[in-house]
Computed example of a mutant assay.
Amino acid sequence: MKAVVLDAFGDPQCLVPRHIADPQDRPGWVTVELRAAALNWHDVLVRRGRYRSPLPHVPGADGAGIRTDTGTEVVILPSLFWGDRTDAPASGFEILGDRIPGTYAHYVSVPEECLAPKPAVYSWEEAAALPLVGVTTYRALVSRAGLGAGESLLIIGAGGGVATMALALGRAVGAQVFVTASTPDKLDRARAAGAAGGVLHTAPDWPEQIRERSSGGTGFDVVLDPVGLWDRSLRALRPGGRLVVLGANVAERADMDVRAFFFGQYSLLGTTMGGPADFRGLLGLVADGEVPPPPIARVFPLDEAAEAHRLIEAGEAFGKIVLRP
């Protein structure tokens, strides 16, 4: 089969298309003929060697396609070996494309429990773009932060996959959603997608600027930080608010005022990708028509995976980047 193979860690040019052996059948696993594979920042970290993937390796977490055994159209949950608990994954948890060969290929093999019917109203590209970012965001906002109708949500960094999905899910549960963005264009796109307002986070006082736009100027019930700006994000919370964090691509360390934190009665919630229960909850919202399809920024042929990685690293795309095998 044709696949994109990583022979060494490094720049996008390390992603090389070539032919490799098809996946082998094994009990409890299903081979899927892929129709689309979506990119995530996680894929960039795999390419750079963060997860010490075995080489040579096929990256890619997200995908949608057709089961080769039944012909059913499916979407893939890239959360492998989650375990029985819902509060945190088991010790053997990993993401598809970390060590198990991923979706940058014509075929991929996954545990049968990681397959769900493709949402009928979604295209192949939209379906492929849903799982990782969708289940991650659902877990962050619903399972962890408990965001509910009538509450306010601030999303840090409009334009990325998590932020775009968070805007859709926040509105789906009845919250009023605000955003920060790096460019006026991303801010305009977020407003067009339903954001109540926002500010550019290029100014040093952006937490105070956006806080003034909250109800009564007291701050937001929930702040979603997918980039690692905890110390600044905290300044936009209302007393007693919840800061839910799930990424560190801008900063991996944060200095926080401990005394101000506990006097503010804040909650700091760490989260990563969700499991099967989160996926069921997400697909329930999708089936009810509450979640619009993820916006697609651009679609590349599988052979152009390196160029797709350059685009995601540039941080200029609004929406998901997709490969078409």
Score class of each variant (00 low, 15 high):
residue 135 V to F: 05
residue 303 D to L: 01
residue 304 E to L: 03
residue 109 S to C: 07
residue 110 V to I: 10
residue 36 A to K: 02
residue 233 S to R: 10
residue 208 E to Q: 15
residue 183 T to K: 08
residue 193 A to Y: 13
residue 208 E to G: 14
residue 253 R to I: 09
residue 10 G to Q: 04
residue 95 I to G: 11
residue 169 L to R: 00
residue 266 Y to V: 03
residue 136 T to I: 03
residue 272 T to Q: 10
residue 308 A to Y: 06
residue 69 D to F: 02
residue 139 R to P: 05
residue 65 G to F: 04
residue 143 S to R: 11
residue 190 A to Y: 10
residue 79 S to I: 08
residue 325 P to F: 06
residue 45 L to R: 10
residue 46 V to H: 00
residue 291 V to L: 06
residue 150 G to V: 03
residue 312 I to E: 03
residue 89 P to G: 00
residue 245 V to A: 08
residue 221 D to C: 14
residue 309 H to G: 02
residue 240 G to L: 01
residue 245 V to G: 04
residue 187 L to I: 09
residue 290 E to N: 12
residue 192 A to N: 13
residue 261 F to N: 02
residue 61 A to T: 01
residue 184 P to A: 13
residue 184 P to S: 11
residue 87 D to T: 13
residue 250 V to K: 13
residue 251 A to V: 00
residue 203 A to R: 15
residue 15 L to R: 01
residue 122 Y to I: 13
residue 283 L to A: 12
residue 97 G to Y: 02
residue 212 E to G: 07
residue 290 E to M: 15
residue 167 L to S: 08
residue 277 A to V: 15
residue 241 G to L: 03
residue 218 T to Q: 07
residue 190 A to G: 12
residue 184 P to W: 03
residue 322 V to S: 03
residue 123 S to H: 05
residue 234 L to Y: 00
residue 234 L to C: 04
residue 318 F to C: 00
residue 182 S to C: 14
residue 317 A to V: 03
residue 85 R to P: 11
residue 215 S to N: 11
residue 9 F to A: 06
residue 78 P to H: 05
residue 63 G to D: 02
residue 325 P to I: 04
residue 7 D to S: 14
residue 229 L to C: 07
residue 8 A to F: 10
residue 190 A to C: 09
residue 270 G to F: 08
residue 51 Y to P: 01
residue 74 V to G: 05
residue 197 G to D: 09
residue 72 T to Q: 14
residue 22 D to F: 09
residue 79 S to H: 00
residue 182 S to V: 15
residue 209 Q to L: 15
residue 89 P to C: 05
residue 233 S to G: 11
residue 169 L to D: 01
residue 249 N to S: 13
residue 177 V to M: 10
residue 1 M to D: 13
residue 170 G to D: 04
residue 184 P to R: 14
residue 68 T to L: 07
residue 57 H to W: 04
residue 287 A to R: 14
residue 109 S to E: 09
residue 273 M to S: 14
residue 8 A to K: 11
residue 153 L to S: 05
residue 295 P to T: 07
residue 304 E to R: 11
residue 101 P to M: 08
residue 283 L to R: 14
residue 151 E to T: 10
residue 248 A to M: 01
residue 254 A to C: 10
residue 151 E to I: 09
residue 240 G to I: 00
residue 76 I to L: 07
residue 98 D to Q: 14
residue 185 D to H: 10
residue 50 R to H: 10
residue 161 G to E: 06
residue 51 Y to F: 12
residue 210 I to E: 05
residue 206 W to E: 10
residue 24 Q to V: 15
residue 63 G to Q: 02
residue 183 T to Y: 07
residue 52 R to P: 02
residue 322 V to Y: 02
residue 89 P to D: 08
residue 180 T to A: 12
residue 313 E to I: 03
residue 312 I to Y: 04
residue 175 A to E: 11
residue 199 V to A: 12
residue 40 N to F: 05
residue 188 D to Q: 15
residue 77 L to I: 12
residue 99 R to Y: 08
residue 76 I to E: 07
residue 143 S to A: 11
residue 79 S to L: 06
residue 254 A to H: 03
residue 230 W to S: 02
residue 136 T to A: 03
residue 165 M to S: 03
residue 120 A to V: 15
residue 77 L to F: 07
residue 38 A to P: 00
residue 38 A to C: 04
residue 214 S to D: 06
residue 297 A to Q: 04
